[in-house]
Design a protein around this nucleic acid. Sequence first.
RNA 1: GGUCCCUUCGUCUAUCGGUUAGGACACUAGAUUUUCAUUCUAGGAAGAGCGGUUCGACUCCGCUAGGGACUGCCA
Length: 469
Amino acid sequence: MPDQSAVVTRFAPSPTGFLHIGGARTALFNLLYARHTGGKFLLRIEDTDRARSTEAAVAAIFEGLTWLGVEHDGEVVFQHTRADRHREAVAQLLSAGHAYRDYMTPDELEAEREAARAEGRAVRSPWRDQDPPAGSNLPHVIRFKGPKEADTVIDDLVQGPVRFANKDLDDLVLLRSDGAPTYNLAVVVDDHDMGVTHVIRGDDHLNNAPRQALIYQALGWDLPAFAHIPLIHGPDGAKLSKRHGAQAVGDFAAQGYLPEAMRNYLTRLGWGHGDDEIFSDEQAAAWFDIRDVGRAPARLDWDKLASVNAHYIREADDARLAALTADAHRARGEALTDADLARLEAAMPFMKTRAKTIPQLADETQFLTARRPLHLDDKARATLTDEAASRLQRLSEALAATTSWTDPDLDLLIKAFAGAEGVGLGKIGPNLRAALTAGRPSPDLSKTLAALGRDESLGRIHDALSQRT
RNA sequence: GGUCCCUUCGUCUAUCGGUUAGGACACUAGAUUUUCAUUCUAGGAAGAGCGGUUCGACUCCGCUAGGGACUGCCA
């Protein structure tokens, strides 16, 4: 016997563009709440507006959610396939006197809208309380006939109780003149039929909630719990848009953020669990309660996102990071060899602590994939005096002679060499580094040598020596 | 214009009437250091304003200001 009290949440995007980061967070909160309560998380595509919905947008939503790791339970519901069921609900409303046919022309509607705005009242149709015109074959929409007295209170899980006066609510269009159902009708019917118990969505829908609640009541259905979460804003506090650098989840993927970092960051944005900043998916599910979500819109903070990302990069598998970093190199037009790939992976344990994003990791590993001969700049050449060059030559010979080309041993070798030469590392490091990387950032010299390998290292030193003027 | 929502360090947040208002990111200073980073230590930084309620308000109420959403035969 199914548990009648089990929680069912859903994410219901409309496929009219990319998957917005705010939508992604809404999906994440729905997922988290479902996991927290042991319930189900469903996905529904709100494509009742056939003209604006596209296949590409549907694909972008699936792709974005998959990348983020927000996986739904059960089959995806496409809202437009349920139009007959929606019309059935409207027929029920009509026969019960909770809906009416509205024959206003576009011009009449426009005039009424202006009048209503000027008078500071809700839009009203004269057909609400009038018999259909003669013939009644005329084009018309079907509107909900809501009560005009009393109040409707939405006991929102995030916003608290919110009271709306019914007289301020206009009569929603349920069916368009072509017979197609509208959003406000479809959400109610679908959420009910899908058994949704908790409607968690952006707070841009808070004003729709009372109208939808009235439809539930007219249909004789129980109301789900509502939770309207604040939207995500850009760093400047304005609604997130293109000029903020990213708004689609695909943008974040392309900019080198890891999905697990995005989940952590997005969960923490607008929600908190004491002082916890970094937490696993399991912890998030265990701690997350929709009631703890904040009521104020949160701003996207690139620095903090980068910091969280840096943490997850350090935790990530080396082979996975090497592959992502290789992709970033290729995206810059570099052709990588198998040797490059091998070096990338071997170097990852100590390279991944140096970057906050994948593109940065590509920057940091440039010294690995650069092609011989590396070109020394004037300054580097100038530092390669006769004395420095002959010392570098001796170091090269010492390196060539070693039988253990590993980080700790190379480190010992360099220090022993400096001791034998009677100079500090400062007399050796800069020249060796210039020869090895030609100014590119690189880790400890011993690590740089180890990552490059014996042949490449020796070759680069040889190249540098031959560039003396 | 109308309806509704929001307001703690620069940012994300903790606090659920009594705290030196805590943490994280960012920032500043110092230490470490063969480049660039990292790491470590220390530091500055907040309750929008005004009235109430209360022995006592960041926490409760009201007003003001500022931000935002909606006001579609879009979702």
